[in-house]
Nucleic acid binder design. Structure first.
Length: 423
RNA sequence: GGAGAGGUUGCCGAGCUCGGUUUAAGGCGCCGGUCUCGAAAACCGGUGUGGGUUUAUUCUCACCGUGGGUUCAAAUCCCACCCUCUCCGCCA
C-alpha cells in the first residue's frame, strides 16, 4: 500500500513508476474515485455530527424534564437518511480499498528501467567448472545416485512434486542446517519457526493477496492458504505491532517448505527440480528503520551470497529491471547460481527492499524518538537460499567423470565426514 | 469437540448489573519542567490511534476482539462469529 498523500499530491511520481513497471493500473480513474470517496465521506460525517448533537440535546431536555419529542423526530428522520448514505458509502469504500490493493510499490530510482532484458549484471563470483568429460544434468545424476525419486512425488500428489531419498534427503536437510547455522552464527539472524498455513489477512499484508491468489493453494473451508514463502508468516509476526525503536533492526531467519501452484507455467523450465509445487527454502527477513533500508539490502544480499561462496559455487548477481519487479518490491536483486549440466544460471534468491509498502499494509510501526511519532518500518527479505536449484547446482558442479559427486567440504560434517556420493 | 471465564485507547487496568456530564477513570511508560555538579527519587504540567478538513490554528468523524441488530443515544442491551485462558474429552 502506498501513502495516499503521495497519490494526491504527487500523482506524477506514481504514474511514472507504473509506466516503468508496465502496470496498467488506472491512476486517473482512481484519483477520480478518491474525490468521490472524500466528498461522500464528508457528507456522511456532517450528518453524523448533527446526529450526535441531537442525541446530546435530547439528553439535556430529558434531564430538564422538558419534552424532547421534536428532537427525537428530527433524529429519527436523520437516522433513515444516514442509513442510506452509510450503505452507499460502505460499498464505495469497499471498491476504493480493493482498487488501492492493486496498486504496486513505487520503483526505486536506482532500478534499471525496462523489461527483463534490461536486468543488469551487478557482480559475478567464481569460475564455471572445466570438465574433461560430458557433464550430466541433475536429473540423471540424482536418479543414478538414488537421491531423488521423481516418480514417487507424482504418484503421491501430482506433477512437479518430488521425493528426496537417501543421500538426497540428507543433502536437503544438511543444506537447511548449514544455511540456518551460517545466518544465525555468522550473520546475526534470529531463527523463527512458523505455521505453513496462514489466513487471508496475513497474505494481504505482505502483498500476495489479492494479486497472486491463483498462484496459491487455498484451504477454502478455513480461509487458510499454504505459504508460498516464509516471508509471509515471518513478516506478519510484527503485523499490528508497535515496535520499540531499540528493538530495530530485527533480523529473522526461517526455514519452511514453500507451496506454489505455478499456474500457467507448465512446460516452462519445469524439468527435474527447476519448478516444483513444493520446495524448501531458508528465508531472511529484516525489519529496519527507514533511513537504513538500502544499506540493509546490500548486507542481506551479501549474507545470501555467502552461502554460495562457502559452497564454492559460481554465481552472479542481477539487479532486476523495473518491469521484472514483484508487486511489493521497490528494488530487488536476484542471485543466480551456475549449473553446468543444464548449462544455465539458476535463480536461487531474490533479495528485496519493500520500503514501507508491506509495513503500511500490515501496520508495522515503531515510535521514532526524534520525531516522537509512529513511523512505518521498512521490511526486506531474501532467500538464503532456495533448496532445489541449489541442490541441482551442487550435483552438477561437483560431479565426477565416474558419475559420483563430491560433497562440498562445508557439508561433510553432516555426512559423517564422507567425501562423495557414489553409486 | 464440550463447559466456564475473558478480549477496553503503547502496557496494566476500572467502567458493563441500572444505555446518556466517559470528548473511556486510575496506574505504568513516554515528553517537558522544578530540584541536582550530573543522575535517581520526589513534585508540577503534558501525552490514545486512524481518517476527513484547513496555509495554519481549528473543526469534525470513526474506533472498547470482528460483523450485524435494538435505540433519539451503545464500551454498556441483543444476535452471530473469531481469538485467549482454565477444566473435561480426544490425540501425535
Amino acid at each position: 500500500m502506498l501513502d495516499i498523500k503521495i497519490l494526491r499530491n504527487n500523482p506524477e511520481i506514481v504514474k511514472e513508476s507504473l509506466i516503468k513497471r508496465n502496470d496498467k493500473f488506472d491512476l486517473d480513474a482512481f484519483l477520480a474515485l478518491d474525490n468521490i470517496w472524500r466528498n461522500k465521506l464528508s457528507e456522511l460525517e456532517t450528518l453524523s455530527a448533527r446526529q450526535n448533537i441531537l442525541a446530546q440535546e435530547t439528553q439535556l431536555l430529558i434531564k430538564d424534564k422538558k419534552d424532547p419529542k421534536s428532537k427525537i423526530e428530527e433524529s429519527k428522520q436523520l437516522k433513515s437518511q444516514l442509513a442510506e448514505l452509510e450503505k452507499d458509502f460502505a460499498q464505495l469504500d469497499i471498491d476504493y480499498k480493493a482498487k488501492l490493493d492493486w496498486l504496486p510499490n513505487i520503483v526505486h530510482s536506482s532500478v534499471p528501467v525496462g523489461d527483463e532484458s534490461k536486468n543488469e549484471l551487478v557482480s559475478q563470483y567464481g569460475e564455471k567448472p572445466d570438465f574433461k568429460f560430458k557433464a550430466k544434468d541433475h536429473v540423471t545424476l540424482a536418479e543414478e545416485l538414488n537421491m531423488v525419486d521423481f516418480k514417487a512425488g507424482t504418484k503421491l500428489t501430482g506433477t512437479n512434486f518430488v521425493t528426496y531419498t537417501g543421500d538426497g534427503a540428507t543433502l536437503e536437510r544438511a543444506l537447511i542446517n548449514f544455511m540456518l547455522d551460517l545466518h544465525i552464527k555468522e550473520h546475526g539472524y534470529r531463527e523463527v519457526s512458523v505455521p505453513f498455513l496462514v489466513n487471508s489477512k496475513t497474505m494481504r499484508a505482505t502483498g500476495q493477496l489479492p494479486k497472486l491468489k491463483d498462484d496459491m493453494y487455498n484451504m477454502s473451508d478455513d480461509d487458510f492458504y499454504l505459504i508460498p514463502t516464509a516471508e509471509v508468516p515471518v513478516t506478519n509476526l510484527k503485523r499490528d505491532v508497535l515496535l520499540d525503536e531499540s528493538e530495530l533492526p530485527i533480523y529473522n531467519v526461517c526455514a519452511t517448505p514453500c507451496f506454489r501452484r505455478e499456474a500457467g507455467s507448465y512446460g516452462k523450465d519445469t524439468k527435474g527440480l527447476m519448478r516444483l509445487h513444493q520446495f524448501d527454502k531458508v528465508e531472511l527477513v529484516k525489519f529496519v528503520k527507514p533511513g537504513t533500508s538500502y544499506d540493509e539490502l546490500e548486507q542481506l544480499l551479501e549474507n545470501a551470497c555467502k552461502v554460495l561462496e562457502l559452497l564454492k559455487l559460481p554465481y552472479r548477481v542481477v539487479a532486476l529491471a523495473s518491469g521484472d519487479l514483484s508487486f511489493a518490491a521497490a528494488k530487488c536483486y536476484d542471485i543466480e547460481v551456475y549449473s553446468p549440466g543444464i548449462d544455465k544460471w539458476l535463480e536461487v534468491s531474490s533479495c528485496s527492499n519493500f520500503e514501507d509498502f508491506q509495513a503500511r499494509r500490515g501496520n508495522i510501526k515503531y515510535k521514532d524518538s526524534k520525531t516522537g511519532k509512529r513511523e512505518f518500518v521498512h521490511t526486506l527479505n531474501g532467500s538464503g537460499l532456495a533448496l532445489p536449484r541449489l541442490f541441482t547446482a551442487i550435483l552438477e558442479n561437483y560431479q565426477q567423470e565416474d558419475g559420483g559427486v563430491v560433497i562440498p567440504e562445508v557439508l561433510r560434517g553432516y555426512f559423517c565426514g564422507h567425501e562423495r556420493f557414489s553409486r
